[in-house]
């Protein structure tokens, strides 16, 4: 059983852990670090429920090996709220962007990754950024609206 000691930053917290080579970043977050906010919807990088921000970019945690995240910075949904709720979270809650909630963490992470780089995206840019996050409840319109309300375009 191959293992590796990895050092990474998760939600601004520096940490070291020894992980098995054959687990994904998603497994590391959920099963080892107890950060269950990031969800497993398909485990094959198609639904976006496992979206986290890795070194500033939105990625599917299920398609990244934990060992591959050695030396990286990871932001998960648990790290979005600092002293108070992030404007994205407030907007999602108030504007009806949440139904069953399973896609919500992934949606917020994809949206945050976008807004962190581009605070004023167009509707098309928002759709492109979130086109890899499936929502079966169909809350797409309200999600788009919730994000749009935070921009000045």
């Amino acid at each position: 059983m191959y293992k590796k000691l990895i050092k990474l930053q998760v939600n601004s917290e520096k940490m070291e852990c020894t992980v098995r080579n054959n687990i994904t970043l998603l497994d590391l977050l959920r099963d080892v670090l107890d950060l269950t906010g990031t969800k497993k919807g398909c485990d094959t990088g198609e639904c976006g429920a496992c979206t986290v921000i890795l070194d500033g970019k939105a990625v599917n945690a299920c398609l990244i090996l934990a060992v591959d995240a050695d030396g990286s910075e990871v932001q998960t949904i648990e790290g979005v709220r600092k002293m108070s709720l992030h404007p994205l979270q407030i907007s999602f809650i108030e504007r009806g962007a949440i139904q069953c909630g399973f896609c919500t963490p992934g949606m917020i992470m994809s949206a945050k990754a976008l807004l962190d780089r581009n605070p004023n995206p167009t509707s098309e840019e928002i759709k492109t950024a979130l086109a890899g996050n499936l929502c079966r409840c169909g809350a797409y319109n309200k999600i788009l609206y919730s994000i749009k309300c935070l921009t000045s375009k």
Binding site: T51, K57, V59, S110, T128, A129, L130, A131, G132
Partner: peptide, 9 residues
């Protein structure tokens, strides 16, 4: 190609 998350990797 793919999605934003896929394109990032």
């Amino acid at each position: 190609m793919g999605t934003t998350q896929i394109r990032n990797r």
